[in-house]
């Protein structure tokens, strides 16, 4: 418990660091909200017109003052207003988050339910044809970019079967579970396949390590069935690196899967941040990155806690 509190105490410091970096980085890039809105037509503005637009976009003050205003707003839960959406930043983020969260969970579910069994299967048939087959499949899965998988899936479905899920909008699960799943399954499979490949490889090598450990030999010599040796004795320990990998991946996914969202036209967090950067919607970029960083830290903490649960030898307090 102390450990959790200690970790939580570090959160604000990291978040402040992140916020400063994002704040400065996005302003260092040439171009601003005015050129984003007007493009080359911005050249037709008189200096007075430019000043009024700068006030409108809230970029008329020097950076430190802009930052201070934004920073003090944070304490009252005010992340600012998004100029593109005309809504509070937090509202925009929370509207997009359910999709991103669902996509992350679904693709993790697909990846783990393919990857872990496949890895274990390969490890128990080490260097036999079945192992080789799984390894080749994993290699292909890992090296095929998601946009290729995505576009191929879309092409096969639309040209071959004449069907395609509704694109462009998101139907929340609680509104229409079937419609929701039909929209989410392709993106989840696309993301899940690539990740399943990594999970397969990691769980295979972890399993091989564990299977050669003394305690597994002990278990076998005590007469435990092969099934019980693998699933009860070996697997929990072999899962530690899988949890690490999944934790990092899940953290990334909570920041949105830009390419997959782009291909399947999903209004998720990733595309929102991308558009916000292109539009120089400063408040939205800052708020979203902060939100994503917070998610990442929470997931990381949960992963560390999961280690302890999986392997009693790991003591978090002592670290």
């Amino acid at each position: 418990m102390n450990y959790v509190i200690r970790r939580l105490k570090a959160f604000p410091l990291v978040l402040i660091g992140v916020s400063v970096v994002v704040f400065v980085a996005i302003r260092l890039v040439p171009g601003d909200s005015i050129t984003a809105m007007l493009g080359t037509e911005a050249g037709l503005l008189t200096p007075q017109q430019r000043d009024s637009l700068a006030i409108y976009f809230g970029i008329d003050q020097p950076w430190p003052i802009q930052y201070w205003r934004w920073f003090t707003g944070l304490f009252s839960g005010d992340l600012g207003i998004s100029v593109t959406y005309g809504k509070p930043v937090l509202t925009v983020i929370l509207e997009r988050f359910p999709l991103t969260l669902e996509l992350a969970l679904l693709s993790m579910l697909i990846a783990l339910s393919i990857g872990v069994p496949a890895g274990v299967f390969a490890a128990t048939r080490n260097e036999r044809p079945a192992d080789l087959g799984v390894r080749i499949a994993a290699m292909i899965g890992q090296s095929t970019p998601s946009f290729v998988v995505g576009l191929i899936l879309i092409y096969i479905l639309s040209a071959g079967f004449g069907v395609l899920p509704t694109m462009g909008i998101f139907t929340p699960f609680w509104q229409d579970p079937l419609e929701n799943l039909s929209q989410m399954i392709l993106p989840a499979v696309t993301l899940g396949c690539a990740f399943a490949a990594s999970v397969t490889r990691v769980s295979r090598s972890a399993m091989l390590d564990v299977l050669s450990d003394d305690y597994v030999r002990t278990a076998r010599s005590k007469g435990a069935s092969e099934r019980s040796v693998i699933w009860r004795h070996a697997l929990p320990n072999a899962l530690v690196p899988v949890v690490t990998l999944s934790g990092i991946e899940f953290g990334y996914l909570l920041g949105g899967a830009v390419i997959v969202e782009q291909i399947y036209a999903l209004p998720g967090l990733g595309r929102m941040v991308l558009e916000a950067i292109l539009q120089r919607d400063y408040a939205l970029v800052q708020g979203a990155v902060l939100f994503i960083a917070l998610n990442f830290m929470i997931v990381n903490l949960l992963v560390d806690l999961a280690y302890a649960a999986l392997d009693p030898r790991i003591r978090l307090e002592g670290r």
């Binding site: 879309i154 639309s158 291909i263």
Partner: peptide, 18 residues
């Protein structure tokens, strides 16, 4: 109007009559 950022997906959606 749906915003489909990838034009390949637009073509696919037109192919299926969506």
């Amino acid at each position: 109007i749906s915003v489909l950022p990838d034009e390949t997906a637009i073509l696919a959606a037109m192919r299926t009559g969506q």
